[in-house]
Amino acid sequence: MVLERQGVISFDLISKLEFNDPLYLHPSDTSGASLITQKLKGTENYNVWSCAMKLALQTKNKLGFIDGTCVRYEYEDDEVLLGQWDRCNSVVLTWILMSLSEDVYSGQIFSKNVESVWSELKETYDKIDGSVTFNLYKKINSCSQSGQSLSDYYHKLNAMWRQFDDMIKIDDMVSANKSFQEHNQFLKLMQFLMGLVDVSDLNLTVNLPNGTVAKILQIGNLKLSDKIQLLMCWLFHNTMLV
């Protein structure tokens, strides 16, 4: 009878947890479904994987289990909440393990604490690999429109630029140096224009980092209308360059 009453009290306490409480678990959270489709393979895709995983955990209000803001010892005075913390830790750990490639998974399967796993993965794979950086930059420089629509070409190039910037921690550099930020934006604009099939006869101008204005004379053979030209410049300035 005592155990039954304790069970009722425990269930009642857990059921009263608000959805914004890090210990709250929705029934679907324990379904075994993967949070993200990206599999961590190693250094080559750690940045993309960690970004996707943190975003997914944020939607579940479970970031605290990997960044140290929701820790076990805070609930040691309450046996019920302590047990709930252990369940949440196991759920988040399962989500992360399910998003690892087979080789990475085998090295973490016996881990018990999700924060420790996250820290170890970061320490192991959050590194600037010269060959990975080179190959990505090579793809950026060889990227061209090549039959794609203007928007498809832009989004493909922009995705690679954002991955490259994150890989070399470009935000830390540009935030402290406005001139470098403008130069970096100018290089991206030049890369975008060089990959177009043609921008001849567009009367297209760009603002240089030194404050002067340059006219793009020729980069190919496809003629775009003034409307598309203006759309391209607006899209690039307001999305990629800001």
Results as ranks from 00 to 15, higher is better:
Asp21Glu: 07
Asp21Ile: 02
Tyr24Gln: 05
Ser28Tyr: 09
Ser28Pro: 12
Asp29Pro: 07
Ser31His: 00
Ser34Tyr: 08
Leu35Gln: 06
Ile36Met: 03
Thr37Met: 13
Gln38Met: 06
Lys39Gln: 14
Leu40Trp: 12
Thr43Cys: 13
Glu44Arg: 08
Tyr46Asp: 10
Tyr46Glu: 03
Trp49Cys: 00
Leu55Arg: 14
Ala56Ile: 02
Leu57Pro: 11
Thr59Leu: 15
Lys60Leu: 02
Lys62Gly: 00
Leu63Tyr: 01
Gly64Ala: 14
Gly64Leu: 15
Phe65Gln: 05
Ile66Asp: 06
Ile66Gly: 07
Thr69Cys: 13
Cys70Asp: 14
Val71Asp: 10
Val71Gln: 14
Arg72Thr: 01
Tyr73Thr: 14
Tyr73Arg: 13
Glu76Val: 08
Glu76Thr: 03
Asp77Val: 11
Asp77Arg: 11
Asp77Phe: 15
Asp78Val: 05
Leu82Glu: 15
Leu82Val: 09
Arg87Ala: 01
Arg87Trp: 01
Asn89Cys: 11
Ser90Lys: 13
Ser90Pro: 08
Trp95Cys: 00
Ile96Tyr: 02
Ser99Phe: 10
Ser99Thr: 06
Ser101Cys: 12
Val104Lys: 04
Tyr105Glu: 10
Tyr105Leu: 11
Gly107Cys: 12
Ser111Ala: 15
Lys112Trp: 01
Asn113Pro: 00
Glu115Phe: 15
Val117Met: 13
Trp118Gly: 11
Leu121Asp: 07
Glu123Gly: 13
Thr124Glu: 06
Tyr125Glu: 01
Asp126Val: 03
Asp129Arg: 09
Ser131Val: 12
Phe134Ser: 01
Lys138Trp: 05
Lys138Asn: 07
Lys138Cys: 08
Lys139Gln: 13
Asn141Met: 08
Ser144Phe: 04
Gly147Arg: 10
Ser151Cys: 02
Asp152Trp: 02
Tyr153Asp: 12
His155Gly: 00
Lys156Ser: 06
